[in-house]
């Protein structure tokens, strides 16, 4: 049996999937995943049930469909490796059984070398719930040489994501990554075009300056005051008190 302790020892990509698809007896289902620039809130990558993927493909092996669903190829902007703070947002739902001690461990490799490892405990998940996990990665600064090599070696950056409930491995997914060079001479980044509608709306609203930790309190207040206070607002109760 594979435990969290085991996968934390891994120093190179797993050769096979370490549990069958059927190990996910909790009905854990990923609904949406997004990568953004934490400071500007710009979307760099997004995929979801209702969001057709750009820059993503499955590694279909018709001899082994079960594995194909768990092997995804992504194309990311090289900014994912270079920006100081990367935000990710994952939406997932769970089935009718409560999850105790839900935990994700993700190991990232370049070729056969471990470059990053993430370990996050969600803890308890309410039966039938839909949950969102937004986190910020301050990337361990990667050497410029390593970044260049990763960019020039498509799909040689890989990751294994392991999901545990307690000590039981319930999901194992694999991904490989290709990084797209950004044109330094251009104002626009590739993802400005890929996610034009959402990212341009962001800038237009002035929230692109973001409430990041770099922004001091005065700016922050000013920024949040630029929100859409003239709109209906998110509360259904508004009508009752207007």
């Amino acid at each position: 049996m594979i435990t969290p302790g085991d996968v934390l020892e891994f120093r190179k990509p797993a050769e096979n999937f370490l549990c069958p698809l059927s190990a996910n007896c909790y009905g854990i289902d990923f609904l949406q995943f997004q990568i953004n620039d934490y400071e500007t809130k710009k979307i760099i990558f997004e995929v979801g049930k209702d969001i057709p993927p750009v820059n993503m493909e499955m590694d279909i092996d018709f001899g082994n469909m079960e594995d194909s669903f768990r092997k995804i190829k992504y194309t990311f902007s090289e900014d994912v490796l270079r920006l100081p703070l990367i935000g990710t947002s994952l939406v997932f739902k769970v089935g009718d059984k409560p999850l105790e001690d839900f935990r994700m461990i993700e190991r990232h490799y370049f070729r056969n070398k471990l470059v990053k490892s993430y370990d996050f405990t969600f803890g308890f998940c309410i039966p039938g719930s839909t949950n969102t996990w937004d986190t910020v990665y301050s990337l361990p600064p990667l050497e410029d040489d390593l970044i260049s090599e990763m960019v020039s070696s498509p799909y040689e950056t890989t990751s294994d994501s392991f999901y545990f409930v307690g000590d039981t491995l319930v999901m194992h997914n694999k991904a490989s990554y290709r990084y797209k060079l950004e044109d330094g001479a251009q104002d626009k980044r590739s993802y400005d075009t890929d996610y034009e509608a959402k990212n341009s709306r962001l800038t237009a609203k002035g929230t692109a300056q973001g409430d990041s930790k770099m922004v001091d309190s005065e700016n922050k207040q000013a920024d949040s005051k630029m929100g859409d206070s003239d709109d209906e607002g998110p509360w259904s109760k508004n009508a009752d008190y207007d």
């Binding site: 769970v94 309410i126 949950n131 969102t132 996990w133 937004d134 609203k205 859409d228 998110p234």
Partner: peptide
């Protein structure tokens, strides 16, 4: 963006 928030039927970790 706070324009499209629906009731939380679980958790949001941020």
């Amino acid at each position: 963006d706070i324009n499209t928030i629906s009731p939380t039927l679980g958790f949001n970790i941020k």
